[in-house]
Deep mutational scan, measured.
Amino acid sequence: NKASVVANQLIPINTALTLIMMKAEVVTPMGIPAEEIPKLVGMQVNRAVPLGTTLMPDKVKNYE
């Protein structure tokens, strides 16, 4: 099972992601793969992401 990116804290809307905000966890359904964490640093979320929520591609601005 592959790990996904999960919010390590509440991430407010329009916040630029940092390493400390994210952790890798095996979750269902799968979100953004954990190996993409370095790519996500500096990207902004387009909505608030509660603690423990899986980061889905549609929650990150300009994620492809």
Rank of each mutant, 00 (worst) to 15 (best):
N1Y: 14
N1L: 14
K2P: 12
K2Q: 13
K2Y: 13
A3D: 03
A3K: 12
A3S: 09
A3W: 09
S4K: 01
S4E: 01
V5Y: 06
V6M: 04
V6S: 02
V6W: 04
V6G: 01
A7G: 03
A7D: 04
N8A: 15
N8K: 11
N8T: 15
Q9N: 04
Q9P: 03
Q9Y: 06
L10G: 07
L10F: 15
L10H: 15
L10Y: 15
L10R: 10
I11T: 00
I11R: 00
I11Y: 04
I11C: 05
I11G: 00
I11K: 01
P12I: 06
P12Y: 08
P12K: 08
I13Q: 11
I13F: 08
I13P: 11
I13G: 06
I13N: 10
N14T: 05
N14M: 08
N14I: 06
N14E: 08
T15W: 08
T15Y: 07
T15D: 02
T15A: 10
A16G: 07
A16M: 12
L17E: 01
L17R: 00
L17A: 00
L17Q: 00
L17H: 02
T18E: 10
T18Y: 02
T18S: 10
T18G: 04
L19Y: 11
L19M: 11
L19F: 11
I20Q: 14
I20P: 14
I20G: 12
M21P: 02
M21T: 03
M22D: 03
M22G: 03
M22Y: 05
M22E: 03
K23R: 15
K23D: 05
K23W: 07
A24I: 07
A24W: 08
E25R: 13
E25F: 09
V26E: 08
V27Q: 01
V27E: 02
V27F: 00
V27T: 09
V27M: 05
V27G: 01
V27S: 01
T28Y: 15
P29H: 04
P29Y: 07
P29C: 09
M30S: 12
M30R: 13
M30Q: 12
M30A: 14
M30N: 11
M30G: 09
G31A: 02
G31M: 02
I32Y: 01
I32S: 04
P33R: 08
P33F: 06
P33I: 03
A34Q: 06
A34G: 07
A34C: 09
A34P: 05
A34R: 02
E35G: 11
E35T: 13
E36D: 12
E36W: 10
E36H: 12
E36L: 11
E36G: 01
P38Y: 10
P38H: 10
P38N: 10
P38Q: 09
K39I: 13
K39E: 09
K39A: 11
K39V: 11
L40V: 02
L40I: 08
L40F: 02
L40S: 02
L40T: 03
L40Q: 02
V41Y: 01
V41P: 03
V41G: 01
G42S: 00
M43L: 12
M43S: 06
M43D: 04
Q44W: 09
Q44N: 05
Q44R: 14
Q44I: 14
V45L: 08
V45P: 06
V45H: 00
V45Y: 00
N46H: 09
N46L: 14
N46F: 08
N46P: 02
R47N: 11
R47M: 15
R47L: 10
R47H: 13
A48F: 09
A48V: 12
V49W: 07
V49L: 10
V49P: 07
V49H: 08
P50G: 08
P50H: 09
P50M: 09
L51Y: 14
L51T: 11
L51A: 15
G52V: 01
G52M: 04
G52P: 04
T53D: 15
T53S: 13
T53C: 13
T53H: 13
T54L: 05
T54S: 04
T54M: 03
L55F: 07
L55S: 00
L55V: 05
L55M: 05
M56P: 02
M56T: 15
P57G: 06
P57F: 04
D58K: 02
K59C: 15
K59M: 15
V60H: 04
V60C: 06
V60I: 15
K61Y: 10
K61A: 10
K61F: 10
K61I: 15
K61S: 09
N62V: 03
N62L: 08
Y63E: 02
Y63T: 03
E64W: 13
E64F: 13
